[in-house]
Amino acid sequence: MDRPTDLVPLRYLSLGGHGPEDVVADRRGRVLTGLADGRILRIDGLEDPVTARVEEIAEIAGRPLGLELLPDGDLLVCDADGALLRVDTGSGTVRVLAEWAAGERLRFCSNVVALPDGSVCFTVSSQVHPLEDWLGDLVEHTGTGRLLRLAPDDKEPEVLLEGLQFANGLALSGDGSSVVVAETGARRLTRYRLTGPGAGRAEPLVENLPGFPDNLWRGTPDGPVWVALAGARVPPLDLLHRAAPDVRRRAARLALRAPFRPSGFIGVLAVDDEGRTVHHLTRRRSGFRMVTSVCEARGRLVLGSLWERGIAICEAPAPR
């Protein structure tokens, strides 16, 4: 992997609420995000925090995580409390698309991506730990994440992949033939082939990432997949993951009782469809912590965070 370059912050925009976990940009360069209190916001005018317009476009009953804009302007929303939603960004109307899979209630919906045929794929990070106990799943290494697919006329999604290590962000390949899944707990990106040779199979796309991949974002089919790194690699955790399940469970209980504060590390990657690194940007001592999402908007990188009360706008790297 190429030597990382500096991730340069330009400005910070407070949103008056906690945890803008995912950020996505629309065609006009406006950024959408969801806060812990259920509000979905749209931000315009990122160039100047003083004059930026922050507009509430909807509110859900749960906790919004992954977002995906649809061609008609609607917004897909993963509710961490167990549902896949569709939001009309004009009226604010919220519709439930799925609450069950394989005969079980959904739990910890994480990220979603729209497919060319009108279906959607989305992830469930854990079937053991809820969002508030996300650290417990990373420590215990439960491997209970799932990738699901909901066809346009289906009432319940089908399970495409099981056994994923904290399934998280999703992105579509440039040609639409596969999806890329971020496995946060395994520090890898996994490719699942939807069509063509090898359809229905999964394979590693990038392994041994320098940090824990969270949400993914792709602006255009010919652009790279941006990967938010929620934290730097922790070597002792790699060793713990090789321990017996009961040892990991005990360690997870201890981790959940200990106070948590993310380090000052922030990082993002951009990779192409072959898994080659296009950009690798980091900052070791940042006042903005725990980057869980990244998107491009108006020539800048916009960072979201499960931890912060706003978003960060950073300098974008020169195209390669």
Rank of each mutant, 00 (worst) to 15 (best):
V96Y: 02
C109G: 01
V124C: 14
V54N: 01
V50Y: 09
V94F: 03
L135G: 13
R105W: 08
G136Y: 13
C78I: 11
V50S: 15
E68T: 04
V50D: 15
S126A: 11
D117N: 13
C109V: 15
G136I: 10
V120R: 04
A101C: 10
S119G: 12
D81K: 04
D74K: 11
H129N: 11
G118R: 09
P130V: 12
G92C: 05
R107D: 02
S91R: 12
D72A: 06
D133N: 13
A114Q: 05
D133G: 02
A58G: 10
T93I: 05
E99L: 00
S110G: 04
L76N: 07
R95D: 09
D79R: 05
T123W: 08
V128A: 12
R105S: 12
L65W: 01
V77H: 06
D79P: 08
L75T: 08
V77I: 12
E132I: 00
F108Y: 13
A101F: 03
L70D: 01
L70R: 05
E68M: 05
R95C: 02
W100H: 11
Q127V: 03
R105D: 10
C109R: 01
L115F: 09
L131D: 14
V94R: 06
R105N: 06
V128M: 09
S110C: 09
G82D: 03
E55H: 10
V112M: 06
I60G: 12
A61Q: 15
V87G: 01
A61Y: 07
N111S: 15
Q127D: 15
V124G: 04
E59C: 14
E47A: 15
I60N: 12
A80Y: 11
R86M: 05
I57G: 04
L67C: 05
E55D: 15
V94M: 06
I57S: 03
V54Q: 02
W100V: 14
L106E: 02
E59F: 00
L84A: 07
P49R: 14
C121K: 05
E55A: 11
A52M: 10
S119Y: 09
P71A: 13
G92P: 03
R105E: 10
L84R: 04
T89Q: 01
V120Y: 07
T93W: 03
T123D: 10
G136T: 09
D79N: 14
R105H: 12
D74V: 01
F122M: 12
Q127E: 15
L115V: 07
L70C: 02
G90Q: 09
R42Y: 07
F122H: 12
